[in-house]
């Protein structure tokens, strides 16, 4: 039942030829996949595991194949693919035995593509959320420790972005914009390395505005919590040159939170 040949001749229509697709047992496909993984041929391995998933849907092999496919696409550097595979695994098998590993692969896929601070930090935010979920849902899994460390790094990256924009406004003497950005770093990203610089920048901004009391408080908090940080030395020198000593108003919530925080994390200095 051929149809009329249409207007443009060089496009041929596809013919139907009955032909049976042979069924290869799942175990063989799985081993072939593992063999390819050993040879670092990740794209082919990923296709092999995908075939299991399609040929034997909703079977134990399919579950194993899916986690291996996630791992293959992750190792192959195809992060957008590994994200989709990991998400599919987590929706199909939320409490499967490899769920922690899938969550870890998901977070690491975002983590590997975190750009420098001057560019959109969308992947950084997604990595943060994924690592947090891993720490909360699988606290005792072997990935929790590394997740905690990576959380610190990713938070540090987000703080770096806020600092970048804060400094942008500081240079242009838009003190309102700058102060609010540095305040965000001090309140939201206390555990990152940027908090020292944020406090020093607050000292600079308030001094430039002439509100000396605020400058002193910021410098005092910085000195109190990070006494030998180079940033504190700068802030101190700055206030000296401005002829004003840094003194801390102890009643403030910020000193209280910092006192509590230094004890728990033991980061001090």
């Amino acid at each position: 039942c051929d149809t009329l040949s249409s207007l443009n001749p060089f496009e041929k229509d596809e013919k139907y030829k009955p032909e049976l697709v042979p069924d290869v047992p799942a175990a063989n496909l799985y081993n072939e996949g593992l063999a390819l993984m050993a040879k670092n041929e990740y794209p082919d391995a990923s296709k092999k595991f995908d075939q299991i998933d399609k040929t034997y849907p909703r079977s134990e092999w399919a579950r194993k194949a899916l986690i291996m496919k996630t791992y293959a696409s992750y190792e192959g550097g195809e992060f957008s693919e590994s994200v989709n595979d990991a998400r599919r695994y987590l929706t199909l098998y939320p409490n499967g035995e490899d769920a922690a590993y899938a969550q870890y692969l998901l977070a690491m896929s975002y983590y590997r593509e975190v750009p420098d601070v001057t560019r959109d930090q969308e992947r950084t935010e997604k990595a943060l959320a994924a690592f947090q979920e891993l720490v909360e849902r699988h606290p005792r899994s072997e990935y929790a420790e590394d997740a905690k460390f990576k959380l610190q790094v990713v938070r540090d990256q987000l703080a770096g972005k806020e600092m970048e924009i804060g400094r942008y406004y500081l240079q242009r003497r838009n003190y309102t914009g700058a102060i609010n950005r540095f305040r965000d770093v001090v309140s939201k990203y206390q555990t990152t390395r940027h908090v020292e610089e944020a406090l020093q920048r607050l000292t600079e901004a308030y001094l430039a505005l002439g509100v000396v009391s605020e400058a002193q408080t910021a410098a005092a908090v910085l000195g109190h919590n990070f006494p030998d940080s180079p940033w504190y030395k700068d802030a101190y020198k700055l206030l000296q040159s401005g002829g004003h000593e840094p003194r801390e108003d102890t009643g403030s919530w910020i000193s209280r939170t910092f006192r509590g925080f230094t004890r728990s994390v033991g980061l001090g200095g």
Binding site: R119, D120, K161, I165, Y169, N174, T176, G177, N180
Partner: peptide
């Protein structure tokens, strides 16, 4: 918030604004 800039740096976009945060 500057978003979607997978390549251009944040300041390359922000500096085209004569208006800033707080204004």
């Amino acid at each position: 918030n500057v978003r979607g800039n997978t390549r251009s740096r944040d300041y390359v976009i922000r500096r085209e604004f004569d208006i800033g945060e707080g204004d």
